[in-house]
Simulated assay, not measured.
Amino acid sequence: MRFKGLDLNLLVALDALLTERSLTAAARSVKLSQPAMSAAVARLRDYFRDDLFTMVGREFTPTPRAERLAPAVREALLHIQHSIISWEPFDPTQSDRCFRIIVSDYVTLVFFEKVMERVAQEAPAITFDFRPHTDDNDDLIRRGEVDLLILPEMFTSNAHPRARLFEDVHVCVGCRSNKLLSEPLTFERFMSMGHVAVKFGNTQRPSIDEWYLNEHGHKKRIEVVVQGFSMIPHMVTDTQRIGTLPLRLARHFAKTIPLQIVELPLRLLLPFTEVAQWPALHDNDPASLWMREILFQEASRMVSPLTTAEPLVDRTDVVSLNSQIASWPGL
């Protein structure tokens, strides 16, 4: 079928080529033969009067015109999928939907346990595909290739809807035998100690605390780099190294690992909020609405770590911590 001279089937082929960057893989993804996909490329080039792709090695590299077309083509196809094709009501008790969620190991460990329990009871056939944060989170959510993205509010995009889930605060962790943590931690001692740091993606993006230090001209003495927060407790055990963790996660690991939890120096107390973000085109999708409602309900039941009766460490009560945050002057 043609719309103003364009065969709309070609948009499916173009989207596959932009995603796969390979003629063979693109043909396979839309169930076309390789000659048929080659013919589609020729017709696309003829219609748009542009090469659209050039070969760099064995990869199809989009031209600037193709790059500009990519978001519009993906948005059009997603709109058709969610507004026209996926018209049936969502029944969680019968659905076998797989939710693709970009989420850190931290949020998985401290939050998703209750979510999974709820889903197992209400929608036993629903499955999850938890994916790590990458360098192209924004592109994946724009293209609708993931259903949800959960990350600190300060790192979210304004291009898609979002909602707050829960709050946390960073703390310093080390081995219980680490005598350097027996006294209140000064900024100077914190910076001079060896650190275990977590970095994300191929570009090695830092976590919030390291990002904040870098923004203010300070650099940690990093001895070990790990791929996720859950590796930090194991890397500080039986060493003099320290790490920075969200308080909820630190308490989670302190139940099974000889972990000492201490306050960060005043200027590094970093309260933050985890938020859920989803593709704009999923805003009214019944399945997405159902999943988001479960997330929001379970998040509302989480007690703030700053108001819990459990003390942060033996020598400091919660009132002191809250007052320090309220008067925090920054760096």
Rank of each mutant, 00 (worst) to 15 (best):
K4R: 14
L6T: 10
A16T: 00
T24R: 11
A26E: 03
R28K: 14
S29A: 10
S38K: 08
A39C: 06
F53V: 06
M55W: 10
G57S: 02
G57N: 01
F60S: 15
A66R: 14
A70V: 04
R74H: 14
E75G: 03
E75F: 11
H82V: 15
S86E: 11
W87G: 05
P89Y: 04
R97K: 10
V103G: 12
T108Q: 15
K114S: 15
A125S: 14
F128M: 00
T134N: 05
D135S: 06
L140F: 11
I141V: 15
R142D: 11
L148E: 14
I150C: 05
P152L: 03
F155M: 15
N158K: 07
P161C: 10
R162F: 11
A163Y: 09
E167D: 12
S182P: 00
E188T: 07
E188V: 04
F190V: 06
V198I: 10
T203F: 08
T203P: 00
L213R: 07
E215K: 15
H216T: 06
G217E: 06
G217A: 05
R221D: 11
V224F: 08
S230E: 06
I232W: 05
I242F: 12
P246L: 07
H252D: 07
L264V: 09
F272M: 12
V275A: 09
Q277H: 01
Q277V: 05
H282M: 12
E298R: 06
S300C: 09
D317A: 01
G330E: 01
G330T: 01
